[in-house]
Amino acid sequence: MTLGQGVQFVTFILLAAMMLGSALGVVLLENIVYSAFLLGGVFISMAGMYILLNAGFVAAAQVLVYVGAVNVLILFGIMLVNKRQAFTPMARTWLSQIATGGVCAGLFALLTVAVLNTPWSLSELTPIGEGAIIEIGKHFFSDYLLPFELASVLLLIALIGAIVLARREFIPDVVLGQPEPDALQLPERPRELVSVTPLNDVSES
């Protein structure tokens, strides 16, 4: 990275503010669709931080995988589970929120003290920058070969498992008096219960 120190610092401040603000929005906003879009903001600013850390390849992978796949997947999940229900209020919710906030603040203070007090053995070498992708490829096919292959097997397992878990069961059609036209039928029917009323009841009411 050939940016000056001041430019780097200002960029870091901007990215950190954007990332933490979006993360707070993800956790605290009421509307879950806003949360999902703010999650995309978190991922993009994280990719900017990776570029600031001389890792262009991982930044591109972050944008492709997280913004392009995971965020879209979460948006699809929200659309499939679009139940607008008001959660039944629990007793002493504020107490658990305050306790969790205290625990998180304590953990953050602990981590910050540990970060600031550890004598890091910083390396004096210049980062390889654009040669990182070549180095990552060498790592993948020499000393990280087994984890690389295991990751591909795990992705296959996750693919099949997600299909098996999310698949709807086949439910046969319910014949109600007259059959529906075949052209409008889908091979799978939704499982949500529809109020089944016979035809003569409908005509009476």
């Binding site: 997280y66 979460i74 990751a151 992705l155 996750a158 498992g161 997600a162 878990l165």
Partner: peptide, 14 residues
């Protein structure tokens, strides 16, 4: 990153 992608897919399926 790859494990997180797999986790998101399986989690949403569940």
């Amino acid at each position: 990153i790859s494990i997180a992608a797999a986790e998101a897919a399986v989690g949403l399926a569940i």
